[in-house]
């Protein structure tokens, strides 16, 4: 097991490096002189010259990249042009808000999804099943921003339960700042159908029939035998859902005006603060990689077969 985790950790290093290279190259494709792009429109000629020498922009491309890489290793992602502070500092300040949203969102929406999925599987083909399937199919098809906007209109405007600007208003109860985005994630819940189909698949297995034949109670079969086994694909989906929610935060935080990394990134693009765009993108991707890694390790612990299969592919 330890070897497996170590191996997976080792494999994230080239991926992280690749992510950095991609972001580095992409940001440098923006038309215009990199010094001018990085310093913004207000920079003077003298500032641009200083920046050029300081960042080695007058040197060959490969040397420049090497410098950027060296800076990365000491945790220096440059200075933000709109915040006038180191990029990493600005990003880390906003990170807790995004992590909080992702965790609450994924835990609550997964719980609701799993419950609904189990109910649907139990009533296979009957009306509760059909209703749940219809709503979850609709939910997964609705764009996040669309659900979010309606949650805002209904709960902030019509009912006045939550503030329109989630965590910007001082003195708002904690749960109110999370209510809107989390409800949006619940309504978009994509796990219902995964849970239902893996439950149904398990219910067709021989050992369930054996349990039934032995006279095990229906409830025990459902929760212990079926759900226990169906949990492996579900756990995987929850983990990948967590990874995806770091990306989903971009839209959610924009809709609910939450000051997280996603909103920070969108604002940075708007104000052409490219060092911050580069930094925030890199951090979001890093978290996504870590969430995926965590998922693989957890499923590896839950289901040893995956661990072995994973070893072969390396």
């Amino acid at each position: 097991m330890r070897n497996y985790i170590l191996k997976r950790l080792l494999f994230t290093i080239p991926t992280l490096l690749g992510v950095f290279i991609v972001v580095y190259i992409v940001i440098r494709q923006i038309p215009g002189d990199p010094a001018e792009v990085m310093l913004g429109k207000t920079a003077t000629t003298a500032q641009i010259e200083i920046y050029r020498t300081a960042h080695g922009l007058d040197r060959p491309a490969i040397v420049q990249f090497w410098l950027a890489l060296k800076h990365l290793f000491v945790g220096d992602l440059g200075m933000s042009l709109s915040h006038y502070r180191p990029v990493l500092e600005v990003v880390f300040e906003r990170l807790p808000s995004t992590i909080e949203l992702a965790l609450y969102g994924i835990v609550i929406s997964s719980f609701v999804s799993i419950v609904l999925g189990v109910v649907a599987a139990t009533f296979r083909g009957k009306w509760p099943d059909l209703i749940i399937i219809a709503f979850s199919t609709l939910g997964t098809s609705l764009p996040t921003f669309y659900i979010g906007l309606w949650v805002l209109v209904i709960f902030a405007l019509k009912l006045g339960i939550i503030p329109v600007l989630s965590n910007m208003v001082k003195g708002t109860a904690y749960w109110k700042t999370l209510f809107g985005p989390v409800l949006t994630m619940v309504l978009g819940g994509s796990l219902v159908r995964t849970t239902r189909s893996s439950m149904l698949e398990i219910m067709d297995e021989d050992f369930i029939r054996t349990a039934k034949a032995k006279g095990v109670s229906g409830r025990k079969i459902l929760f212990k035998h079926a759900l226990g086994n169906a949990l492996i694909p579900i756990v995987t989906m929850v983990g990948y859902g967590l990874a995806i929610s770091f990306g989903g935060a971009i839209v959610l935080e924009t809709v609910f005006v939450r000051s997280g990394v996603g909103k920070l990134l969108i604002d940075a693009i708007g104000s052409r603060d490219y060092p911050l765009v580069q930094g925030a993108t890199f951090i979001i991707a890093t978290f996504m990689i870590l969430a995926n890694l965590l998922t693989d390790v957890v499923t590896g612990i839950v289901d040893p077969r995956i661990r072995v299969a994973g070893d072969v592919s390396f």
Binding site: T15, G18, V22, F246, G247, I250, I269, I284, M288, N292
Partner: peptide, 24 residues
């Protein structure tokens, strides 16, 4: 395979966004 790993490390929307700003 490694290139695809890197691409999949980005949320899809984020990758679209940064490719979009680079291309114009």
């Amino acid at each position: 395979g490694r290139i695809v790993d890197v691409m999949m490390a980005f949320p899809m929307l984020l990758l679209s966004l940064i490719i979009g700003i680079a291309l114009g």
